[in-house]
Structure formats: structure tokens, C-alpha cells
Simulated assay, not measured.
Amino acid sequence: MKLNSLGLPVEQSEELVNELNGLLSNFQIYYQNLRGLHWNIRGKRFFDLHLKFEELYNDSQLKIDLIAERVLTLGGTPLHTFSDYIVNSKLKVGKDISKDVEAIQLILESLSVLLQVERVILAKASEINDEGTNSMMSDFIAEQEKTNWMLKAWLDEEI
């Protein structure tokens, strides 16, 4: 088995790069959705949600950079065009959403997809003892599970 300079199997690392590029694509769509929600939210909860959406898109922007840098660390090239993001994303594009409940539901749907993708990456990274990717996915999952809980509480729904 051929190992890369990190001591990880080359073939499985290339598979992880593909998975991470998929996650990167999903995060880029998530980020842009959050920007749209931030700009277009209306109603009595405007001030709270406007700030919350900004918090979420700033966090997403940081995660996007971490994912791209992990792709580079593993020897890959991060996707960087909108056409690549659209083709490789599983997220629904949120267009012209201005109502609070609809906005939160879009975020919850997006988080569900992100968590599924991250769990696949976590499993694959664990198989080859890729602690760098593993740690990043664990951190992302823990944060997003908490965000999921809080948004569901806002909607007053069960998890």
C-alpha cells in the first residue's frame, strides 16, 4: 500500500478529497443561502434572525476555508467555481425566502444534509486513521447538532 507524506494511504486519501470537495460544495451553497436569508428576512423577528443568519454565515465561511485547506493538506485541489458547487451539492437552493419559519426550515434541511455528508467523511477518515479530517468532522458535527437543537427549539419542535 502506497502512503502519502502524511502517512495515509494514497488511494483512500484521494477518495476523502472527493468527499471533502462534495462537502465544500454543500457548504458554499449553505453559505450563499444564509447570505440570502440574512439580506431578505422580514417580519417581527427581523433583528434577531438577521444577526443569527450573519453568525451562521460567518461560521460557514470559516468552515469553508478549513475544508479547502484540508483538501490541500491531503494533496488535492479544492473546487472553486460556482458551477462545480452546484453540480456537487445536495442542498436545496433557497431563493427569495423572507419568512422566518421558512428560513429556519431551510437551515434545518441543510444541516441535515451537511451532517449526513460529514458522517460519511468521518467514517472514511476513521478507517484510515486520518485524525486531521476525523477531528474536523467531529467538531463540525458537534456544533451543527447543537445548532439543530436550538433551531428546532425556536420552531418549538421535537428533535
Rank of each mutant, 00 (worst) to 15 (best):
D48A: 02
R42T: 12
E143T: 15
L91R: 14
M1Q: 11
E19K: 15
W39D: 04
F27S: 02
L74K: 03
S98D: 14
A68Q: 04
P78K: 15
E109Y: 03
Q12Y: 05
F53T: 05
Q32S: 10
D48H: 00
K90Y: 13
L122D: 12
L6K: 12
Y57V: 05
V87R: 14
L66K: 05
S112F: 01
S5V: 08
W149R: 12
D84G: 06
S135F: 13
R42P: 04
R35S: 05
S60N: 05
E55H: 02
K152F: 00
G7K: 02
K146L: 03
N129K: 15
S89D: 03
Y85Q: 08
L108E: 04
E102C: 06
M137T: 13
S83L: 11
S110Y: 07
S135K: 09
E11L: 13
Y57N: 02
K90M: 07
V120L: 08
K44P: 12
L20M: 10
M136P: 09
N148D: 04
N26T: 01
A142K: 15
N40D: 00
S110R: 05
D96N: 08
S60R: 06
V71A: 08
G75Y: 12
L114S: 11
I97Y: 12
L108Y: 13
L23E: 00
I107N: 08
Q144S: 12
N40P: 02
L51W: 04
I97P: 10
Y57H: 06
I67L: 01
K2T: 13
D84V: 01
Y30T: 07
N21T: 06
N40K: 14
S98P: 03
Y85G: 10
S83N: 10
K44Y: 14
D130C: 13
N88E: 04
T73W: 07
N40V: 00
L62N: 14
N4I: 11
D100E: 15
G94S: 14
A142V: 12
Y30M: 01
K2L: 12
S98Q: 11
G75L: 06
S60V: 02
G75P: 06
I86H: 04
L115Y: 04
L37H: 06
Q116F: 06
M136T: 13
E69S: 05
L23Q: 06
E15T: 02
Y31W: 05
G94T: 03
T81L: 08
I41K: 08
I104V: 15
K63I: 01
Q28R: 00
P78S: 11
T73F: 09
S112W: 00
